[in-house]
Amino acid sequence: MSKNWTRSLRDRLQQEIPMEHLLPDTLPKYVDSYVYLFGVLTLAAFVWIILSGTILAIFGPDWWHVSPVGHFFNSLHFWSIQSFFFFMILHLWAQFLMAAWRDGRHFTWIGGWLMFLVSILAGLTGYLSQNNFDAQWIAVQGKDAMNAAGIGGFFNLLNFGQMYSLHIFVLPLILILLLGGHLLLIRKHGVVEPLPPDPKSEVRQG
């Protein structure tokens, strides 16, 4: 058979992430713990952030500051973000304590950190996109830090258009791409096995 981009991509995918790994119907016994739910809770919060944020973007600041329904979706967006960061930190603790970067899972770990950092940036641009006095205050205070870091020239906190575009398009796009890679890597490698028992504690028991 002659070479062909579609076929080589298909062969590569079948080799890297076979369907049994991509959509498994069983999980190892050690996954029977609430600790393994923090990741998917973060993902669920992210879905709510995107949904409520899309509605906020359609109707705009006049609506989310004045209309009662706008207030509701503003609050929904706010609390989704609170639970997003809450569960992301718990997910981070869990993965740190089980050393989840073992056995070739280093890029899953690094990707998680990248998403954490991008999320903080998304949080900052979100605060700046509120269109209220708080947003103005944060922009005026924060611009000095950006100028001191030497990036004020192309990352201008006082420029609402720039901050809003970053917040509703660029940063979510980066997050969704990183998240897709994160989930594919998890499905490729499977859930990390529990840490081996500490040999010292075995000696003490014996």
């Binding site: 029977d32 713990s33 609430y34 600790v35 809450f86 718990l90 869990a94």
Partner: peptide, 21 residues
């Protein structure tokens, strides 16, 4: 409150038995 809640939920998630099996 948030930090204490995170610690409490984390400990509960480890300690509580998972239903099913």
């Amino acid at each position: 409150i948030v930090v204490v809640l995170m610690v409490v939920i984390f400990i509960l998630a480890i300690a509580l038995p998972f239903p099913g099996g």
